[in-house]
Design a protein around this nucleic acid. Structure first.
Lengths: 251, 251
DNA sequence: CGTTATTTGTGCGTATGTATT
DNA sequence: AAATACATACGCACAAATAAC
């Protein structure tokens, strides 16, 4: 209820602006982005602040830089590219995407969903929504909650049918939970668009889509949310950076 | 050919040192790491350079920082991984799968691949293989190497056309490298089977497939291998567990 | 072939703001 | 209120890689 709209730092604002320009299709192929000096004068910032913005974009994989040559947009720039290596990353999806509720939460008897959530009853609540980037919907998500969880936020305006907001469901949910969400198990596979996905995302039936299945667990190991998402591959790529878990002895 | 032992930048050296200290178990529980000022004097660096090192560690999820309080090692100290998926997991793929070489490594001029690998030349080596589980091929992979890398293993029997083994390409490669592979950037999306995928994996043309794009980098940040794989969704699901990256207590 | 200009990378110094103790 | 510690922002200098001349 607080969050008094603190202004974003300059380097983050610049990063967002550059992200937008890349998505807009400027800088295709081998076109160099503006140099640090050019951006500094254009935005009235110091070169160091511009560097900080680029550091973010490099971390996301949106651009790569070559000393002496310049900065270039990555191969699949233009798609929505986000590093999703942690639960925080999933929550931060809301930063530059827009959620639109297609179906308000309704009480249902769903054996499969209840089983996945490991509930004693077969009663769950279901909500369906899309997420858009630059006004283009790129994913359709169905979420199932255990009844006690759903009742915590079922009457919030953000989850009413047709509601548009910049939240994530777990972001909305978490402040009301007694136990924090600490784990999310994801399964990713390929599938095809059914009638509903096709209609909502505007692609042909049978179009290949990325299916992401997420089960969120709290610190006690109880399941809090099941989400199944269908992503349009043209507008979305799932990106993870893997690292060595420990230093390897030199060969 | 040359590479006369260029020293690592100071912030990277410091980051490595701090990583080692965290792994060694200093800074357990809620023990604060040294402040920026302390580290600056200890290592004879400026505070800005120390900040740069911390920026890396925060990006890895190794530490979290609270203004006014200090810097703390993340929950799972020792292994600063934001996801359970690791490079080791990729290498262990070979445990119960079988690799069959479809095309032996051949020298090619490939602008796109060379660009992805950030080479100065356009010459790369390409190898194509499938991987099977219980004699059922479930993935077709094309790998591109920089010429100097390819020449390290091009004459090994495991990469000859038709060869069958239980290795992974990076597993074969790594013992011959001077720098260890420390990072792998993955992009995952959905696509459809083309003629070749269809033929090799035995699915219809146009069948949805999971496309996984991996770029392996060594400890100096140079790209060592580019691999593009097409997985049959019927026989393969990409599974990751995400955890909260910071052990930061809830507010 | 070296020279020069451009562009990114590293490192340092300073100042100011904000959150916590 | 004061001290501590991180966050942002600007400035400068020099190194290294690249490209053009």
């Amino acid at each position: 209820m607080n969050a008094p709209e603190q202004s974003e730092p300059a380097y983050r604002t610049l990063a967002a602006e550059l992200r937008a320009r890349i998505a807009a299709g400027l800088y295709p192929d081998g076109v160099r982005l503006p140099t640090e000096a050019e951006l500094a004068t254009e935005f009235g910032l110091s070169r160091q602040t511009v560097r900080r913005a680029f550091l973010e974009l490099v971390g996301e994989g949106a651009v790569y830089r070559i000393p002496g040559r310049g900065t270039f947009a990555s191969e699949n720039a233009g798609r929505y590219l986000r590093q999703l290596g942690s639960i925080e990353d999933l929550m931060n999806l809301s930063a530059d995407t827009e959620m639109r509720v297609v179906e308000a939460p309704t009480r249902q008897v769903d054996l499969a969903a209840a089983g996945r959530l490991r509930l004693d009853t077969d009663v769950v609540y279901r909500i369906v929504f899309t997420r858009s980037h630059d006004a283009v919907p790129f994913v359709l998500t169905t979420v199932w909650w255990p009844a006690p969880v759903a009742e915590l936020i079922a009457d919030r305006p953000e989850v009413a049918a047709g509601a548009v907001s910049e939240h994530t469901m777990i972001g909305l949910l978490e402040p009301h939970l007694t136990e924090p969400i600490t784990e999310c198990v994801q399964s990713i596979t390929a599938s095809t668009a059914d009638a509903r996905v096709s209609e909502v995302l505007g692609c042909p039936v049978g179009h290949p889509v990325l299916r992401v299945d997420r089960l969120y667990n709290n610190s006690r190991g109880a399941s809090v949310e099941l989400a199944i998402s269908y992503f349009l591959p043209e507008h979305y790529t799932y990106r993870v950076t893997l690292r060595r878990s420990s230093g390897r002895p030199a060969p």
